[in-house]
Design a protein around this nucleic acid. Structure first.
Lengths: 197, 197
DNA sequence: GACAAATATATAACTTGTTATATATTCACC
DNA sequence: GGTGAATATATAACAAGTTATATATTTGTC
């Protein structure tokens, strides 16, 4: 449902399906993914709705390269979406379901290993965002105090990634601490304890 | 891909499709959603794979109520999934895409309103998790210091929700502060001139 | 000019998930 | 015994997303 609108947003600067796929991977990949096989039919559908217009670009690149641009009707649709309610998809977290059921293994060592893997994953995504933040800081001496509206909105999105991933890493660290303590036997055995295995 | 395994986890206690839908809404809804129209065919598929076995329960409830339970083969599949890699779906955040493109509106007031709406949403989800936390604390005098493995894993999952939602609320608060300051005319025309709030 | 690699577009088959709807039974209540 | 709400299962039509594959062009390089 939102892919259409993301493509609209990106097509404020004209581009082909192939171009859009590259932008996705470079700039949108932090919070959205899309395959070419999904992008092409979506562009066709959007052209039928007159949200975008494509023309055969007789360029040197590609054979039947079609370059799309947003129409005024598409701009209207984009703005409606932006002014509408925040879209909270019911988020699905498989790794959290795994943690939830992991008592099945009856072995806290497995859980500890699992959290260590997760920590690595989240920390490396966090590093990527911090690098991005540094890049912007180097490119703009005023960053992040004074920002043009378009830079401000990019930065607000970036802050979400930073804060959210920091929380994820903190979650893993906390869990690793608790699980390690238990496994070291530092934690007392208590009333309703199950035998150690 | 993970729905199968979540159903396996839940079916450690037997239940019908209808029962499972209720458990989803009550206990899993914090990180996963599933419709009945998805659950029923999935259960059939899992039975064909011999991961679960269903028998017609000639109970007073429902007409052709089928109650499923996990098989030993299903338990094996569940454990493989739990011991496997953490499953990070490429997370899609529509609301973040909206923020990303919102400079299009050329109006920071709209962005401020948008963040206020988001804050309300995240804060109310956070409240729900905090209430859950309190419930557990009231039910168990040792909580959260001493936990049986199954309670521990539930609590680790809960902690993720708490930390993550706190970060989301903090993100909104930070953005609201910055946007309000700009709109109040604390014009950031000079470098490094951010005022208190 | 031959060839490999990169560029570019496209489609088929499949999986997953949503919305809407149909149908029948059981239970609580009057 | 009638009525409505809750229980229970099921399916069709659709929407969204993934994997695998086909194909043609352009570019670099030997």
């Amino acid at each position: 449902m939102s892919l259409d609108h993301i493509l609209l947003g990106l097509l404020r600067e004209p581009g082909s399906g192939y171009d859009l796929k590259k932008v996705f991977d470079e700039r949108i990949g932090y919070f959205w993914a899309a395959e070419l096989s999904q992008i092409y039919p979506t562009l066709e559908r959007m052209e039928r709705r007159r949200w975008i217009r494509g023309r055969r670009a007789a360029s040197k690149r590609g054979s039947g390269r079609r370059v799309y641009a947003i129409t005024s009707s598409g701009r209207r649709a984009l703005r409606e979406w932006l002014r509408g309610e925040p879209q909270f998809g019911d988020e699905r977290f498989s790794y959290l379901a795994q943690v939830y059921f992991m008592d099945e293994l009856g072995d806290l060592g497995s859980t500890l290993l699992f959290f260590r893997r997760m920590r690595e994953h989240f920390a490396s995504k966090l590093d990527a965002l911090r690098a991005l933040d540094r890049q912007w800081a180097e490119a703009d001496p005023h960053y992040p105090d004074v920002l043009l509206p378009e830079e401000l909105h990019l930065q607000l999105a970036l802050r979400k990634g930073l804060l959210s991933l920091e929380a994820h890493v903190a979650w893993c660290d906390e869990a690793i601490r608790r699980l390690s303590a238990r496994l070291r036997g530092a934690k007392p055995s208590r009333p309703r304890a199950r035998r150690t295995q």
